[in-house]
Design a protein around this nucleic acid. Structure first.
Lengths: 239, 239
DNA sequence: TCGTGTGAACGATTTCACAGCC
DNA sequence: GGCTGTGAAATCGTTCACACGA
């Protein structure tokens, strides 16, 4: 839509590509840093350089949500940050349920990633009696069986071993979780209404070894630096 | 930068889209499991179902590497697995250098992701004297300063805090690392020859909260059918 | 003049659909 | 009959390039 109310009732209903959605948190983080540094306006080019993407991408991304910028000047840093926050739902409460409190589960529970943007650890679960009862990140670990009725719009995080991942997903679904972030190397089977995203260390490493192996093949013995994608951004890599 | 992606240099082999590359490790894992279960042949449809993708995608992906299948029958499970392994460089040795041995670094160092596909922990580094000297996953943690000349084709993994991530990247680049997997919430600046991939928990969560927040908006305000929209989204969303 | 917002071109990836082989 | 391999079409995402407003 070509609406352009600089404020107020923005045009909201438009399809936003996942590629754009993945960049929003990145922009948001950079804008937040810039705000702390005293920035009041920012151009698409400046933001693009900091985010490692192109300026056209930045402008296109924001244009999907309305016209936030001022021609000749750029974007108001604070206003832009607020708009992105709102789009990302950072002004709401997002309960997180973590299943599998091993090394990775503990690491994540204690990480900064949970301590902002509305995310809040609402429960930690494991099946191992040796772990149940422990206090991690200020929350007592409970037996997975006790996860029966979770909070609404909860996000489940699976850090259990691969063999236990599907059972963990089933428990989350039964408890009403709306989406699942799976760190276990397993494809999950869930109802269509539940969104699933995958984070897989092993896949990331193998993607790298693929390109490195191929680089050797492609490169004539004394190759000059060959370009691997200059535009590297992909944090989210599913599988 | 905003420059040309340099046509891959693909003289020897056909160009393989990154989207395909990310799926290869997934296929490989599934094939490996099927082999253990005694499977001898597999159809694109069967494999697709297990991987949560479409059969056409599977066939297209494999066709980029040659004609591995038999019409009317499918693919030879073992042969296909071997071909993928080779493409991924699983038959080589891939030294891994991990920088930042906190909770996450320890978790990853001990994870299964490193114990196969040719990956091998070649070094653990940290700047904290309290951590240096500890033995993690059978390897002694060393001071980051000591990382000066790394193994060739090494893959660096950054699990340091955001504030230390760029320094870690600089150290890896100076030591000759060929690629970097960055878990810190920071865009890294590296020479074009170094490939960087990002894994960011916070971004993954925010992507989810974006879609959950939007789902609420899309829903009719009150009442009519309290389920979620029949928004036919795959169970396993991202590729 | 500067930098946004966006049609239009381009490129990448997916899907269709079917010919060809077992 | 069943299933692969692949042109062609469709879809999705990025980049170009420039009109327009501040």
């Amino acid at each position: 839509m070509t609406t352009r109310p600089a404020s107020g009732g923005g045009s909201r209903q438009r399809r936003v590509p996942e590629a754009t959605v993945v960049r929003l948190p990145l922009y948001q983080r950079i804008l937040s840093e810039m705000l702390h540094a005293g920035s009041t306006t920012v151009s698409s080019e400046d933001l693009a350089a900091r985010a490692g993407v192109t300026a056209a991408k930045v402008r296109r991304d924001f244009s999907l949500f309305g016209s936030f910028g001022t021609r000749g000047t750029g974007y108001d840093t604070a206003f832009l940050a607020a708009q992105i926050d709102r789009a990302l739902g950072a002004d709401r409460d997002w309960p997180i349920l973590i299943i599998g409190i091993g090394n990775l589960g503990r690491a994540l529970a204690n990480s900064d990633g949970f301590s902002s943007h509305g995310f809040r650890i609402a429960g930690l679960y494991d099946v191992d009696p040796a772990v149940v009862g422990a206090r991690v990140a200020g929350v007592v670990v409970r037996q997975l069986d006790e996860l029966v009725d979770g909070p609404r719009a909860a996000i489940g995080v699976i850090t259990a071993p691969a063999a236990a991942a599907q059972a963990a997903a089933d428990a989350l679904v039964a408890a009403g979780a709306a989406s699942i972030l799976n760190f276990a190397p397993r494809v999950l089977s869930v109802p269509a209404r539940v969104m699933v995203r995958y984070v897989d260390l092993s896949i990331e490493l193998q993607v790298m070894s693929f390109f490195l192996a191929r680089r050797d093949l492609d490169l004539p013995p004394l190759g000059v630096g060959l370009g691997v994608r200059p535009d590297a951004r992909d944090g989210a890599s599913p599988a």
